[in-house]
Design a protein around this nucleic acid. Structure first.
Lengths: 251, 251
DNA sequence: GTTTACGTAATTATCATATCTATCTGACTT
DNA sequence: AAGTCAGATAGATATGATAATTACGTAAAC
């Protein structure tokens, strides 16, 4: 396995490439450049040209162009002849792309972003719970129950707290029967994974199980408004904690 | 301008290329393939290989690959050696990508999709209004006022009803100060543009202006809950109309 | 002095071709 | 059965050449 030595090789990016099935140079470069943009690596310097990017990372221009095109599709870049490739204002980044969100949450951790995201969750998830109460199938309800059961098991150390929490919230979103809500699957998973350390540090999750169960029970008895309120309370609590943390940090 | 004649030329896709700045072959092909996938052009046939796509559209493989990569980034495709390029299940399409949403809404018009989207709006926009009531700047409030004024003007035939409606809703989203809500800008614009004919047909928009003004007033007096309720009522009405239409259609 | 027109050069866009790599299939061996 | 190897296929990558676009500086025009 003696290939040309390059900054980015197929080996450089093994398993953690959550982007579809890719573990090839293009996806590697996509990840490196994307993360670089989000971190702010190019904030005070002109973004490199295709040729420079290719040379710097030791890959061909074709690979570079494909990675750049993918980042363009995600709203991070735009390219024009003679002007070069430039970073788009953050307002046009596609935050609902799980790659972009992942990069954002991964960087120097921003409580503000976490608050913004949970301000979104407090809109989305209660409504999803309400929809789920109206039309979730038995299977979908069973998935929620399983998630809850895992949370209880995790309490006793028999399962992973984070994975259980995610499983429950994802199950509710799936139960909504609405493809837009279902899209939040990856986002919520990504964000919870990042924020769990944060929220855990502030407050034990012991009380949380009961809150989750309240959502679950309401959905089971087809109580749409009850499910909405319970879920809103659940996420509202998280939001409150974040607000307090922000206030403490700035004080 | 005598270049090689091909199925997709630079001239084929002139101005209407809302995707970033592109009016080149890659963006043209992106649009053609993307629309084809959404419409269902490949539903009962194997998706072509890169080579076939390139030949069919008369472009090089490099262009084809770039378009395919962009569609991969939007969640529509995935590619593996030997397996070929395959269409992803609809559940992994990025519905929050304005291209994807545009293609979806453009196809044989689906009332169900419209309902699903408005089920999302009824979660998002009231919360955005509530946030706007808390922290919109004077400028942002002025933008909402301007949108409302345009709606009044449109009533008298002095402005475009659709554009005015969009302007108001976008202004509220912008006023939320939350980047996730701001992302709905393009989506709401895209969806309203498609649905306006539908909703207009069912009900005159005369009553609508007062509903919009109620939202605006609540935000101005910093009444968070009032804004949320007013906006919820506004979109709830639309949702109800869609539900009735669906019931009628299936009856 | 300001604007307009235009040529130049830089950078992306495209093409064509060749080679590499991953992976499925099936035959062959153990 | 289970493992191993060979062939075939389709995407992945590299390379180099050409075209198209347009920012920018310069000169001409007003």
């Amino acid at each position: 396995m003696n290939r040309k030595v390059s900054a980015i090789t197929t080996d450089t990016f093994p398993n953690e490439m959550r982007t579809s099935l890719g573990r090839n140079l293009t996806y590697g470069l996509l990840d490196v450049i994307g993360r670089g943009i989000v971190i702010g690596e190019y904030d005070n310097v002109a973004f490199p040209t295709e040729a420079e990017l290719a040379r710097k990372h030791g890959v061909s221009r074709a690979v570079t162009r494909e990675a750049v095109k993918m980042l363009t599709a995600k709203g991070l870049l735009s390219a024009r002849p003679r002007q070069g490739t430039i970073i788009q204002p953050q307002s046009s980044w596609n935050l609902f792309d799980s790659d972009v969100l992942h990069w954002l949450l991964e960087r120097k951790f921003s409580v503000e972003l976490l608050r913004h995201f949970n301000q979104l969750r407090v809109a989305i998830e209660p409504e999803a719970a309400a929809l789920a109460a109206m039309q979730a199938t038995e299977q979908e309800c069973a998935a929620m129950g399983a998630g809850l059961a895992r949370m209880v098991a995790a309490e006793a150390g028999a399962d992973n707290t984070l994975a259980a929490d995610i499983a429950f919230h994802v199950a509710v979103l799936e139960g909504s029967g609405n493809p837009f809500y279902k899209q939040f699957r990856d986002m919520v998973a990504s964000a919870l994974a990042t924020s769990i350390h944060f929220t855990n540090r502030i407050k034990g999750r012991t009380a949380s199980i009961e809150d989750h169960r309240a959502v679950y029970d309401a959905i089971l008895r087809r109580d749409s408004d009850g499910a909405r309120c319970a879920m809103r309370r659940l996420i509202g609590d998280v939001l409150e904690l974040i607000g307090e943390a922000e206030a403490t940090a700035s004080a």
